[in-house]
Protein backbone atom coordinates (compact mmCIF):
# COMPACT_ATOMS: atom_id res chain seq x y z
CA UNK A 1 0.00 0.00 0.00
CA UNK A 2 2.70 2.39 1.03
CA UNK A 3 5.10 2.60 -1.86
CA UNK A 4 7.56 5.35 -0.98
CA UNK A 5 10.55 5.51 -3.31
CA UNK A 6 13.62 7.20 -1.90
CA UNK A 7 15.55 7.33 -5.17
CA UNK A 8 12.65 9.20 -6.76
CA UNK A 9 12.46 11.46 -3.74
CA UNK A 10 16.12 12.48 -4.04
CA UNK A 11 15.70 12.88 -7.76
CA UNK A 12 12.84 15.40 -7.56
CA UNK A 13 14.12 17.26 -4.50
CA UNK A 14 16.33 19.75 -6.39
CA UNK A 15 13.41 20.81 -8.59
CA UNK A 16 11.23 21.33 -5.56
CA UNK A 17 13.95 23.30 -3.77
CA UNK A 18 14.20 25.64 -6.75
CA UNK A 19 10.41 25.99 -6.76
CA UNK A 20 10.57 26.77 -3.03
CA UNK A 21 12.63 29.80 -4.01
CA UNK A 22 9.76 30.96 -6.21
CA UNK A 23 7.26 30.34 -3.43
CA UNK A 24 9.33 32.38 -0.98
CA UNK A 25 9.72 35.13 -3.56
CA UNK A 26 5.97 35.21 -4.20
CA UNK A 27 5.22 35.30 -0.48
CA UNK A 28 7.89 37.95 0.09
CA UNK A 29 6.83 40.27 -2.71
CA UNK A 30 3.15 39.76 -1.99
CA UNK A 31 3.70 40.48 1.69
CA UNK A 32 5.76 43.59 0.94
CA UNK A 33 2.89 44.93 -1.17
CA UNK A 34 0.37 43.99 1.51
CA UNK A 35 2.35 45.60 4.36
CA UNK A 36 2.59 48.96 2.58
CA UNK A 37 -0.83 48.95 0.92
CA UNK A 38 -2.47 47.74 4.14
CA UNK A 39 -1.09 50.78 5.95
CA UNK A 40 -2.43 53.01 3.19
CA UNK A 41 -5.87 51.37 3.56
CA UNK A 42 -5.79 51.76 7.34
CA UNK A 43 -4.69 55.40 7.27
CA UNK A 44 -7.16 56.24 4.50
CA UNK A 45 -9.95 55.17 6.83
CA UNK A 46 -8.77 57.67 9.43
CA UNK A 47 -8.79 60.80 7.27
CA UNK A 48 -11.45 63.47 7.84
CA UNK A 49 -12.88 62.70 4.36
CA UNK A 50 -15.97 60.58 4.86
CA UNK A 51 -16.16 59.65 1.20
CA UNK A 52 -12.62 58.26 1.20
CA UNK A 53 -13.24 56.38 4.45
CA UNK A 54 -16.44 54.90 3.02
CA UNK A 55 -14.90 53.85 -0.30
CA UNK A 56 -11.83 52.24 1.31
CA UNK A 57 -13.95 50.59 4.03
CA UNK A 58 -16.23 49.02 1.41
CA UNK A 59 -13.30 47.95 -0.78
CA UNK A 60 -11.65 46.24 2.20
CA UNK A 61 -14.91 44.49 3.08
CA UNK A 62 -15.37 43.40 -0.53
CA UNK A 63 -11.88 41.94 -0.76
CA UNK A 64 -12.25 40.15 2.57
CA UNK A 65 -15.59 38.67 1.61
CA UNK A 66 -14.58 37.12 -1.70
CA UNK A 67 -12.23 34.16 -2.28
CA UNK A 68 -8.58 34.82 -3.07
CA UNK A 69 -8.65 32.40 -5.98
CA UNK A 70 -11.45 34.41 -7.60
CA UNK A 71 -9.44 37.59 -7.21
CA UNK A 72 -6.43 35.93 -8.80
CA UNK A 73 -8.53 34.75 -11.77
CA UNK A 74 -10.13 38.15 -12.03
CA UNK A 75 -6.89 40.10 -12.25
CA UNK A 76 -5.34 37.62 -14.67
CA UNK A 77 -8.22 36.73 -17.00
CA UNK A 78 -10.56 39.73 -16.75
CA UNK A 79 -7.77 42.31 -16.59
CA UNK A 80 -6.93 42.03 -20.33
CA UNK A 81 -10.51 43.04 -21.24
CA UNK A 82 -9.73 46.39 -19.60
CA UNK A 83 -6.38 46.57 -21.37
CA UNK A 84 -4.53 45.27 -18.34
CA UNK A 85 -2.36 42.51 -19.79
CA UNK A 86 -0.24 41.08 -17.00
CA UNK A 87 2.15 38.18 -16.65
CA UNK A 88 1.06 35.43 -14.24
CA UNK A 89 3.66 36.67 -11.76
CA UNK A 90 2.56 40.30 -11.85
CA UNK A 91 -1.14 39.44 -11.76
CA UNK A 92 -0.53 37.01 -8.91
CA UNK A 93 1.45 39.52 -6.88
CA UNK A 94 -1.21 42.20 -7.34
CA UNK A 95 -4.04 39.87 -6.39
CA UNK A 96 -2.41 38.30 -3.35
CA UNK A 97 -0.87 41.62 -2.24
CA UNK A 98 -4.25 43.34 -2.44
CA UNK A 99 -5.98 40.49 -0.67
CA UNK A 100 -3.63 40.48 2.27
CA UNK A 101 -3.49 44.29 2.35
CA UNK A 102 -7.20 44.20 3.18
CA UNK A 103 -6.57 41.83 6.08
CA UNK A 104 -3.49 43.69 7.30
CA UNK A 105 -5.34 47.00 7.22
CA UNK A 106 -7.67 45.54 9.85
CA UNK A 107 -4.69 44.51 11.96
CA UNK A 108 -3.22 48.01 11.69
CA UNK A 109 -6.58 49.56 12.47
CA UNK A 110 -6.69 47.67 15.74
CA UNK A 111 -3.11 48.65 16.51
CA UNK A 112 -3.66 52.33 15.69
CA UNK A 113 -6.85 52.43 17.74
CA UNK A 114 -5.02 50.93 20.72
CA UNK A 115 -2.76 53.98 21.03
CA UNK A 116 -4.24 56.16 23.81
CA UNK A 117 -5.89 59.43 22.81
CA UNK A 118 -3.53 61.23 25.16
CA UNK A 119 -0.66 60.54 22.77
CA UNK A 120 -2.45 62.52 20.07
CA UNK A 121 -3.12 65.31 22.52
CA UNK A 122 0.51 65.43 23.62
CA UNK A 123 1.59 65.54 19.97
CA UNK A 124 -0.84 68.39 19.31
CA UNK A 125 0.41 70.27 22.36
CA UNK A 126 3.93 69.97 20.93
CA UNK A 127 2.60 71.18 17.60
CA UNK A 128 3.71 68.07 15.70
CA UNK A 129 2.11 67.80 12.27
CA UNK A 130 -0.34 64.97 11.59
CA UNK A 131 2.15 63.13 9.37
CA UNK A 132 4.93 63.43 11.92
CA UNK A 133 2.60 62.37 14.71
CA UNK A 134 1.74 59.23 12.78
CA UNK A 135 5.30 58.28 11.90
CA UNK A 136 7.09 59.35 15.09
CA UNK A 137 4.46 58.76 17.77
CA UNK A 138 1.47 56.67 16.73
CA UNK A 139 2.82 54.01 14.36
CA UNK A 140 5.80 53.03 16.59
CA UNK A 141 3.30 52.34 19.37
CA UNK A 142 0.77 50.66 17.09
CA UNK A 143 3.44 48.30 15.79
CA UNK A 144 4.00 45.96 18.77
CA UNK A 145 0.29 45.10 19.22
CA UNK A 146 0.03 44.58 15.44
CA UNK A 147 3.02 42.25 15.15
CA UNK A 148 1.23 39.06 16.19
CA UNK A 149 -1.48 39.63 13.58
CA UNK A 150 1.08 40.63 10.96
CA UNK A 151 3.01 37.43 11.68
CA UNK A 152 -0.09 35.31 11.29
CA UNK A 153 -0.73 36.80 7.89
CA UNK A 154 2.90 36.36 6.86
CA UNK A 155 2.48 32.62 7.45
CA UNK A 156 -0.95 32.88 5.84
CA UNK A 157 0.27 34.48 2.63
CA UNK A 158 3.04 31.89 2.42
CA UNK A 159 0.52 29.08 2.70
CA UNK A 160 -1.76 30.73 0.13
CA UNK A 161 0.89 31.01 -2.58
CA UNK A 162 -0.17 27.60 -4.03
CA UNK A 163 -3.28 29.43 -5.27
CA UNK A 164 -1.00 31.15 -7.75
CA UNK A 165 -0.52 27.80 -9.46
CA UNK A 166 -3.97 28.19 -11.02
CA UNK A 167 -2.64 30.89 -13.33
CA UNK A 168 0.65 29.10 -13.93
CA UNK A 169 3.10 30.64 -11.51
CA UNK A 170 5.83 28.02 -11.12
CA UNK A 171 5.82 27.88 -7.35
CA UNK A 172 6.06 24.77 -5.18
CA UNK A 173 2.56 23.37 -5.72
CA UNK A 174 2.65 23.98 -9.44
CA UNK A 175 5.99 22.18 -9.72
CA UNK A 176 4.82 19.22 -7.62
CA UNK A 177 1.75 18.83 -9.82
CA UNK A 178 3.91 19.00 -12.92
CA UNK A 179 6.18 16.29 -11.54
CA UNK A 180 3.11 14.18 -10.81
CA UNK A 181 1.70 14.49 -14.27
CA UNK A 182 5.07 13.68 -15.80
CA UNK A 183 5.78 10.59 -13.64
CA UNK A 184 2.33 9.53 -12.41
CA UNK A 185 3.73 9.61 -8.90
CA UNK A 186 2.07 12.07 -6.53
CA UNK A 187 2.89 10.69 -3.08
CA UNK A 188 6.48 11.88 -2.91
CA UNK A 189 6.12 15.35 -4.47
CA UNK A 190 3.04 16.31 -2.47
CA UNK A 191 4.47 14.90 0.74
CA UNK A 192 7.64 16.87 0.17
CA UNK A 193 5.63 20.02 -0.49
CA UNK A 194 3.86 19.54 2.83
CA UNK A 195 7.13 19.00 4.66
CA UNK A 196 8.74 22.03 3.07
CA UNK A 197 5.78 24.23 4.06
CA UNK A 198 5.95 22.87 7.60
CA UNK A 199 9.71 23.36 7.77
CA UNK A 200 9.32 27.02 6.88
CA UNK A 201 6.05 27.91 8.67
CA UNK A 202 6.96 26.61 12.10
CA UNK A 203 10.29 28.42 12.55
CA UNK A 204 8.77 31.57 11.02
CA UNK A 205 5.98 31.61 13.59
CA UNK A 206 8.50 31.09 16.38
CA UNK A 207 10.76 33.76 14.89
CA UNK A 208 7.90 36.25 14.85
CA UNK A 209 7.36 35.79 18.58
CA UNK A 210 11.02 36.44 19.25
CA UNK A 211 10.92 39.47 16.94
CA UNK A 212 7.87 40.84 18.74
CA UNK A 213 9.66 40.73 22.09
CA UNK A 214 12.74 42.30 20.54
CA UNK A 215 10.74 45.20 19.07
CA UNK A 216 9.03 45.88 22.39
CA UNK A 217 12.37 45.98 24.15
CA UNK A 218 13.90 48.12 21.42
CA UNK A 219 11.10 50.66 21.72
CA UNK A 220 11.42 50.68 25.50
CA UNK A 221 7.84 49.47 25.90
CA UNK A 222 8.55 46.61 28.25
Amino acid sequence: MFDWRWDFTWQILPRLVIATGNTLMAAGFGYAIAVVLGLVFALAQRTPSRTLTFVVREAVEFIRSTPLVLQIFFVFYVGPQFGLRLSPWTAGMIAIGLHYAAYLSEVYRGGLDSVPKGQWEAATSLNLSTTRTYFRVIIPQALPPSLAGMGNYLVGIFKDTPMLSVIGVAELMHTATAIGSETYRYLEPYTLVGLIFLAISLPTAAGIRVFERWVRRKLGLS
Binding site: Q119, A122, S125, R136
Partner: peptide, 9 residues
Protein backbone atom coordinates in the same frame (compact mmCIF):
# COMPACT_ATOMS: atom_id res chain seq x y z
CA UNK B 1 -1.62 66.51 31.33
CA UNK B 2 -3.04 64.52 34.20
CA UNK B 3 -1.64 61.28 32.80
CA UNK B 4 1.65 62.85 31.57
CA UNK B 5 1.22 61.48 28.02
CA UNK B 6 4.94 61.05 27.51
CA UNK B 7 5.89 59.16 24.37
CA UNK B 8 6.65 55.70 25.81
CA UNK B 9 9.03 54.65 23.02
Amino acid sequence: FQHFNLFPH
